[in-house]
């Protein structure tokens, strides 16, 4: 039971427990905090899988920006009342549970197929370690150049969208028209 196996199970437990916490928390602020712990767990797994840069970026983008926006929105909308997370109306919740179970079955088959497909060329079952961030950057700016430039356009569109939403008639930043 050397340390890497123990580490994997600790991280897996951390991720799954806080993920279940996200969907079953009574108050939105607790599910936001559970979401942060999930992000830390996933960043830890990235570090474990030899992708430190992606792990650090995950913490910056998700834990440091997206979930902060969630916490801020929960604060601004001042949600104090406790809702019952899992309404127990028998039929509809039954269906609600059945459908995801079915979908999960399909996804399990897909995952198994993808593993067989991906590891066709005999990728070593024992993990290969890859860290060199320079190689990652070289690949990003050469092979994926088009996506790199398209992403900046996408972000520009989203900026314009978010601001026009805020300035629309019912919005918060309605300027002096």
């Amino acid at each position: 039971m050397e340390s890497s196996v123990l580490l994997f199970y600790v991280l897996a437990a951390l991720i799954l427990i806080s993920a279940v916490g996200v969907i079953s928390a009574a108050n939105a602020i607790y599910s936001a905090l559970c979401l942060v712990t999930t992000m830390f767990g996933v960043a830890g797994v990235f570090l474990n899988l030899g992708a430190p840069f992606i792990g650090a970026v995950q913490v910056i983008v998700y834990a440091g920006a997206v979930v902060v926006l969630f916490v801020m929105i929960v604060m601004l909308l001042d949600l104090k009342k406790k809702e019952r997370p899992l309404q127990s109306r028998s039929v509809s919740s039954g269906i609600k549970v059945a459908i995801p179970a079915l979908l999960v079955g399909i996804v399990v088959a897909a995952a198994q197929m993808s593993i067989d497909f991906a590891t066709q060329e005999g990728a070593a079952q024992s993990g290969g370690f890859l860290v060199s961030t320079k190689e990652l950057a070289q690949l990003l700016l050469s092979k994926y150049l088009f996506a790199f430039e398209a992403i900046s356009l996408l972000i520009l569109v989203v900026i314009v969208g978010a601001i026009s939403l805020a300035r629309s008639p019912g919005g918060t930043h309605v300027g002096p028209q």
Partner: peptide, 16 residues
């Protein structure tokens, strides 16, 4: 899953 495949196939496309 993207990072797992990039780790076990030892190429960087998954991470990108």
């Amino acid at each position: 899953s993207f990072v797992t495949f990039s780790h076990y196939n030892k190429n960087f496309d998954g991470q990108i």
